[in-house]
Amino acid sequence: MLKIPYSYNIYHDFIESYLPSGFLNIDSQDPIICKLESLMEENDQMLIVMDLTQLTIIYTSKRSMDMLGIEPETNDPLKMMSKVHPEDLHRFGLGRSKLMDLDKNLYIAHKGAALLSTDIRMLRPDGEYAKHLFQCYMFYSPIPHESVYYIQVNTNIEEYIMHKATFHYYVGDDITLFRFPTDELLNIGHYLTHREFEIIHMISKGLNSEEIAEKLFISVHTVNTHRRNILGKTEKGHISDVIFDLMGKGLL
């Protein structure tokens, strides 16, 4: 599907219109909603609105049926998780944990906004998997009750050009990155390949090179080469420094 870039200001217009009601009773005939649905249809996208503090999905756009086979009115966090590719479940779970950390920080500060953005493979209605960009924009609001709200835009990014060995990942307060996806945006990512990330995860669990080699059916020499490459890429002096950094970013 040919993507047609558009301004994400429409999502901020949507927030301004429906935040006072807590995103309840969203009118499908509202011009903003009609425009959003049209843009998402053109660009293979869907929208989820969540009260992050109460862990409640308030609204899901109708395109969740086309992209995931989930009826909008019945969507919940468990249904979303059930659609995640098994190999991405661990990273998906870590992302959820990081969202909870961000929610806590915003709630305690009583102000601010943050963004978590990554790609996850999701099950399509036809039984195949497609790579989705998850753009999770969250913000504190004192109305209609004190909470942290969460706007998630999912985009099918199968046709984008990404570094195949790595994954896109951003977490922080640069809200300018909440914008229509481009190849440049998607290649803001992690410096580790999937295999390097797998090895660093095993090291964090206490496995040594011999145990990792046995589990991955590779040689100890290959494991140690990956370890040296990890230190070279990250410019860290020790693997423990890499692990600490990844934990801080919600990746371990």
Rank of each mutant, 00 (worst) to 15 (best):
D103W: 00
D103I: 01
K104Q: 08
K104W: 09
K104R: 10
K104N: 07
N105D: 10
L106D: 04
L106Q: 04
L106W: 04
L106C: 08
Y107P: 04
Y107C: 08
Y107H: 11
I108A: 11
I108P: 04
I108L: 13
A109H: 05
A109G: 07
H110C: 11
H110E: 13
K111Y: 08
K111S: 15
K111G: 08
K111H: 13
K111P: 02
K111A: 15
G112H: 02
A113H: 11
A113P: 04
A113T: 14
A113M: 14
A113R: 13
A114V: 02
A114Q: 09
A114E: 08
A114L: 01
A114D: 07
A114H: 06
L115K: 03
L115T: 06
L116F: 06
L116Y: 06
S117N: 09
S117G: 10
T118P: 00
D119Q: 10
D119A: 09
I120G: 01
I120L: 08
R121I: 01
R121M: 10
R121W: 12
M122C: 07
M122D: 00
M122P: 00
L123I: 03
L123K: 14
R124H: 15
R124V: 00
P125Y: 00
P125C: 03
P125M: 02
D126T: 03
G127N: 00
G127F: 00
E128C: 00
Y129N: 11
A130H: 11
A130T: 14
A130N: 11
K131T: 13
K131C: 10
K131D: 06
H132F: 15
H132S: 12
L133W: 05
L133Q: 08
L133S: 06
L133D: 02
L133E: 06
F134V: 13
Q135S: 12
Q135W: 00
C136E: 11
C136I: 15
C136L: 12
C136V: 15
C136S: 15
Y137V: 11
M138E: 03
M138S: 11
M138V: 11
M138I: 14
F139A: 09
F139M: 11
Y140G: 06
S141K: 03
S141V: 07
S141Y: 01
P142I: 09
P142G: 10
P142Y: 10
P142H: 09
I143Y: 14
I143E: 15
P144C: 08
P144A: 03
P144H: 05
P144M: 06
P144S: 05
H145L: 13
H145T: 15
H145W: 10
H145A: 14
E146A: 12
E146H: 09
E146L: 04
E146Q: 13
V148H: 02
V148F: 02
V148D: 03
V148Q: 04
Y149N: 07
Y150H: 12
I151V: 15
I151E: 07
I151T: 12
Q152G: 10
Q152P: 03
Q152C: 14
Q152L: 15
Q152Y: 05
V153W: 00
V153Y: 00
N154V: 13
N154T: 08
T155M: 07
T155P: 09
N156D: 15
N156F: 01
N156W: 01
N156L: 12
I157N: 06
I157H: 05
I157Y: 03
I157W: 03
I157Q: 07
E158H: 04
E158I: 05
E158A: 13
E158G: 12
E158W: 01
E158V: 07
E159S: 14
E159N: 14
E159C: 10
